Computed example of a mutant assay.
Amino acid sequence: MIKLTPRLLCVAQAVGNCDCFLDIGTDHAYLPAYLIENGIAKRAIASDINPNPLLNAERTVADENLTGKIELRLSDGFKNINPDEAEEIAVAGMGGLMIAEMLNTTAWLKNSKYRLVLQPMTHFEDVRRALNENGFEITDEQTALEGKRVYLVISARYSGKTEEKPAYWYYTGKLAGSKKESDIAFCNKVIKALTKKYEGSGDITSLEALRSIENAKSN
């Protein structure tokens, strides 16, 4: 049985029961293997842009006796994925700019039947902005501590609506003001990065975001 790190476990816990799960950027295919072994997904597509990670995934599939339940596929993001192949979709462990680009260019994701579970490593604000501008509603946000690192997991579904958001929302979303240890750690991480950016370049956008976050935390 596959055991996941806190980061991947946080992603797994955001995935709903499904016939088919799609993992973009699967690496070792630990996530789809875990979901199938725990009865959350009946089968899965594990995709990656490079062949070498798929070799790792192939070993996982063999070791866990999941041949026939996990399909391995070489794909640059969603380019070799067809609509209607899966209803629960994860994009984890990638930079936020790359995830945002996928959201901006994959039109068929704009359907409420898909749940997107996104775990950006950087540029969280760009992911939230791309979701909002493309009509996706963020339905949940969770954080996970793994050693000294803290990770963000966003769940979203297409609603067709865009909303004007305060500055803090793009950086901390619903987490500002939370008392959960990992949420506090994430907000502090964002504040530290914005402070460094403002002090280094005088970036006004960073200053406005900092003020907005502090205001949200106090409310």
Results as ranks from 00 to 15, higher is better:
Asn215Pro: 00
Lys197Thr: 14
Glu199Met: 15
Val127His: 02
Ser112Tyr: 05
Ser206Ala: 09
Arg157Trp: 02
Val153Gly: 09
Arg157Cys: 12
Glu199Thr: 10
Thr172Tyr: 02
Lys110Asp: 06
Pro120Cys: 01
Asn188Leu: 05
Asp183Cys: 08
Glu163Cys: 07
Gly200Glu: 10
Lys196Asp: 14
Ser201Asn: 12
Lys197Pro: 09
Glu199Gln: 15
Met121Asn: 03
Lys180Arg: 15
Glu141Lys: 02
Gly147Lys: 12
Arg157Val: 13
Glu214Ile: 02
Lys165Gly: 05
Lys110Asn: 03
Ser178Phe: 01
Glu163Asn: 15
Val190Gln: 05
Arg211Met: 06
Leu145Cys: 08
Ile191Ala: 02
Asn132Phe: 04
Ala185Ser: 05
Ser178Ala: 01
Thr122Glu: 00
Leu207Glu: 02
Ser212Val: 09
Asp183Ile: 01
Lys161Leu: 12
Glu133Ile: 02
Tyr151Trp: 11
Phe186Asn: 01
Lys165Glu: 09
Phe186Ser: 07
Glu208Leu: 11
Trp108Phe: 14
Thr139Cys: 13
Thr143Asn: 01
Leu145Tyr: 10
Asp183Leu: 03
Leu118Lys: 04
Lys110Ser: 13
Lys174Ile: 04
Arg157Leu: 06
Trp169Arg: 15
Phe186Lys: 06
Arg128Phe: 02
Leu109His: 04
Glu164Gln: 14
Thr139Pro: 00
Lys196Tyr: 09
Thr143Ile: 00
Gly173Ile: 09
Tyr198Gln: 15
Val153Asn: 11
Lys189Leu: 12
Tyr158Thr: 12
Gly200Leu: 10
Ala193Pro: 11
Lys110Phe: 02
Lys197Ser: 13
Val150His: 01
Arg211Trp: 00
Thr139His: 11
Glu181Leu: 03
Asp183Pro: 03
His123Arg: 09
Lys165Leu: 14
Ala193Tyr: 12
Gly177Thr: 10
Leu210Gln: 12
Ala167Gly: 10
Glu181Ile: 01
Gly173Ser: 08
Glu137Ser: 15
Tyr170Pro: 13
Leu118Gly: 03
Trp108Gln: 06
Glu208Gly: 07
Val127Lys: 11
Ala185Cys: 07
Arg211Ile: 02
Tyr151Gln: 05
